[in-house]
Design a protein around this nucleic acid. Structure first.
Lengths: 220, 220
DNA sequence: TAGATTGTTAATCGATTAACAATC
DNA sequence: TAGATTGTTAATCGATTAACAATC
């Protein structure tokens, strides 16, 4: 169990944990029992000090001269993230993005299992999407309470995002994974994580623009 | 035109630009002509100094006592990101995530238009997905050259990611928007931006776990 | 034991925030 | 003009990296 120091782990460290996890799982599949931070760093393009700091966040301790025990490290990361016992999740907004996320098996690895969808559009209700039922949004409250679902994936249009978030909060949802560009207002007991695909695309676009500019000036 | 100072803009600033853009577009729709950094900051939960620094990245200058001209600011951000003239993009890997992204209209706002899909699976080839054709991966090279497509969206399974990236680079793709968890190796002339949904989910999970822990200890 | 590797403390770096001068 | 707001320089803060002692 990661010791609770009362301090928050640095966000950048938390963001890197899944990459470590993935590498470690492949090492384990190769039968490796032990690994050093230097090795991990080389694979992932990080300096070994950073790897050590990041891993320490999960409460793991390594052995000097030996390194880290691979299975123990995997367990430590998974427990820290809560990915050892997967959470059920509801998805609100069964548009094209929502439908895709409902069908995406990859989240299972990340401890998330989308079990049902919700939408306001009568045409979508009752339909099965990738084997999961779609319910009317009004039923969110009852269903979430009944099934003890704490996580919601929000994929409605931006204009409907705040209202949908309110419904989710009212239904007892404690964590909202927000794929909309809206800035959500929720009570402090509810955690929101914004995916912000547009932020990622902005980085790509500006770098491409810069790369093309540089090329042009260099060729002059 | 943003003046080229030779310095790179801070990544965090670039990542915030889409949020400014969105707010500004809604202000323009409301007929507002001018806006202060204080106002922008309040809407987005940022201090006004940061807003000023971020906007300065795009080359915009405001007027003391007045604020920033809304349409000029929109134009400045869009030009900086290259979103004023949309890029055509190819998508490689027409799985459930890929299919969704092909159907997602929202990227048009962000200057990206996915025009075709590519896959190795014969069953997927020739099919239309949201009105866009799917071609065999071998044709990527010719087609990209012919259509002068510079941007690629990568949504293949992780194990196939590096190979697919190689094909994209060979096809002349200059920017890869990588939805896979793989760490891609590409030549320096090619820009890669990783979406890392798992990093985002890790933040959500760890915060939820923490929130639930805190609740439990508090109730004791 | 000697060497390798961890854990931790200190130094550096970059981004955020604060202070203030310039200006419409 | 006076007040509000920008642009810029300085201070603070947090994360990354480097240095080094502890240890298997």
């Amino acid at each position: 169990m990661p010791e609770d120091t009362g301090k928050f782990a640095p966000l950048p460290s938390i963001r890197r944990l899944p990459a470590y996890l993935r590498l470690l799982q492949s090492l384990r599949a190769d039968g490796r029992d032990v690994v050093s931070c230097t090795h991990i760093g080389k694979e992932l393009g990080l300096v070994c000090t950073q790897v050590r700091k990041d891993l320490a966040v999960t409460g793991i301790v390594g052995k000097p001269k030996v390194g880290y025990n691979v299975p123990a490290l995997i367990a430590s990361i998974e427990e820290f993230l809560g990915w050892n016992n997967p959470q059920d999740a509801f998805l609100v907004g069964v548009g094209s993005l929502g439908r895709a996320l409902m069908g995406y098996q990859g989240f299972q690895e990340y401890g998330l299992r989308i079990v049902a969808g919700f939408d306001v559009d009568p045409a979508k209700i009752g339909v099965e999407v990738h084997g999961k039922k779609v319910f009317p949004l009004e039923e969110l409250g009852n269903t979430a309470a009944e099934m003890r679902v704490l996580v919601g994936v929000l994929t409605v249009p931006a204009a409907a995002a705040q209202d949908a978030a309110r419904s989710m909060v009212q239904a007892g949802i404690r964590a909202i994974w927000n794929y909309t560009p809206a800035t959500l207002e929720v009570p402090p007991s509810v955690v929101v994580e914004d995916v912000k695909l547009s932020a990622s695309l902005a980085v790509l676009s500006s770098r491409l623009a810069e790369s093309l500019r540089r090329e042009k000036t260099e060729s002059v």
